[in-house]
């Protein structure tokens, strides 16, 4: 994500510092505080249990030190450092959004912010209009009519093949090409794996898809099964003027997109509730869409997050 830079005046700086300090305190009160480390920090470990040094750690002068910035994680004996701004690490079943990089024989190569391009085979997807595919050579030649280069597509992680390549699948109407909206990229760790990644915000008429790889789609709502045939698109682009996203919907898209930008600039995990919260707060306090990225709302968001986490903590204690 291109970083958002905010200019704060003196009082806003003080308020932000206070809010961040609150958040730090709250995270220490939570059950298992995460230990943030930078390079060469000593990692406190219990030697008697015997440990295994994992990724990002090194034995130095009899101590375990971190070799990268991140958060210390421990799984049984294994101690490792999870980097915060690392690339996305796919897991089977993740819903991801990617951009088509290349069309190769029978497959699309898709950029998903992983260390390599993912592969979407022609045979592992249902055609957008749901018709049965006839596996002919002609079909393979027509792959561009389904996805072209640079298209934004949504798919599911199918798994790693034997040769180490990552394969995707798109066997449902809800997967496929995404149009009429904007793609945002945030650090992948901000999107937690949940039951639901597709959200249709009915009150706004907006589709929000939180890809596990940190790609987030905010676009106009598309009714499933009403995907036009590729031929229609040509004519649709021609009379562009009539086909623009309605202004009302666009305002909502921009508002939600700016909420995502703002939250990711703060480094808060993205969930549907918090995104909607931020968007609604901006409406109720009469903040223009553009001013959502301004200093005042930036600080307010941090303060609101403090309140939210504090109330969560209270509830969990009860």
């Amino acid at each position: 994500m291109r970083e958002l830079r905010v200019l704060l005046n003196q009082t806003q700086k003080v308020r932000l510092q206070a809010a961040l300090q609150h958040l730090r305190d709250l995270s220490f009160q939570a059950s298992s505080p995460a230990i943030p480390v930078t390079i060469a920090d000593t990692i406190p470990v219990n030697r008697e249990d015997g440990i295994l040094k994992g990724h990002g750690t090194l034995e130095f002068n009899g101590q375990v030190v971190a070799t990268q910035c991140g958060v210390v994680e421990q799984v049984n004996k294994l101690v490792y450092v999870r980097a915060l701004k690392a690339r996305y690490k796919p897991e089977v079943g993740d819903i991801i959004i990617g951009r088509v990089n290349e069309i190769a024989p029978k497959r699309w190569r898709i950029e998903i912010n992983f260390s390599q391009d993912a592969v979407l085979m022609l045979q592992s997807m249902n055609l957008p209009d749901g018709i049965q595919r006839r596996r002919t050579a002609v079909d393979e030649l027509n792959m561009r009519s389904i996805f072209e280069e640079n298209d934004v597509v949504c798919a599911e992680v199918r798994g790693f093949q034997h040769d180490g390549s990552l394969h995707l699948q798109a066997r449902s109407q809800k997967y496929g090409k995404l149009e009429r909206g904007q793609l945002l990229t945030v650090p992948a760790y901000l999107v937690k794996r949940r039951k639901q990644h597709f959200h249709h915000l009915e009150q706004y008429g907006v589709d929000l898809i939180l890809g596990c790889n940190g790609f987030i789609w905010v676009g106009e709502h598309v009714v499933l099964g009403e995907n036009e045939m590729p031929e229609d698109q040509e004519s649709r682009m021609e009379n562009q003027e009539q086909n623009f996203t309605p202004l009302k919907v666009r305002q909502q898209i921009c508002r939600i997109a700016n909420s995502v930008r703002l939250l990711s600039a703060h480094g808060f995990s993205l969930s549907l509730e918090i995104i909607l919260d931020t968007a609604e707060a901006s409406v109720s306090s009469n903040v223009e869409i553009n001013d959502m990225l301004g200093a005042e709302f930036y600080v307010q968001t941090a303060e609101r997050e403090v309140q939210r986490r504090a109330s969560l903590l209270k509830k969990s204690r009860r």
């Binding site: 934004v152 623009f244 997109a257 869409i289 553009n290």
Partner: peptide, 26 residues
């Protein structure tokens, strides 16, 4: 610079025509 898909291009042009750009600016 990554390329943009036809849909995104359309969205950007539409935003400019409607005086509301992707980040909410006029």
């Amino acid at each position: 610079m990554v390329g943009l898909s036809a849909g995104e291009k359309h969205f950007i042009c539409g935003g400019i025509a409607q005086d509301l750009r992707s980040d909410g600016r006029q």
